[in-house]
């Protein structure tokens, strides 16, 4: 599961933010990290929902890193 989640997120980042370079599990998704804006985060949320049926952005705490997203699915 973890590998699949990481693959989906990295493919998404490679498409919308090719300039972001390598994304580790600790790279911040926004601002100085990957640099996703709110609409790109919204798009990632839809991609994850399509792929896994649920979406970590639906919760109270917004995921800040790839690790947060992985944790959402692994602990779900």
């Amino acid at each position: 599961m973890q590998d699949r989640v990481e693959q989906v997120v990295r493919e998404f980042v490679a498409r919308v933010k090719p300039e972001a370079g390598e994304v580790t599990v600790e790279t911040p998704l926004y601002a100085d990290g990957v640099g996703l804006d709110s609409l790109e985060a919204a798009e990632l949320s839809a991609v994850l929902e399509d792929e896994f049926g649920t979406d970590p952005f639906q919760g109270d705490t917004m995921p800040e890193t790839l690790n947060d997203i992985v944790s959402f699915y692994v602990t779900a």
Binding site: S38, L39, A46, Q58
Partner: peptide
Amino acid sequence: GRRNPMTGQIVA
């Protein structure tokens, strides 16, 4: 419009 937790809706 597809419902979205970040922006209310996104263009789908």
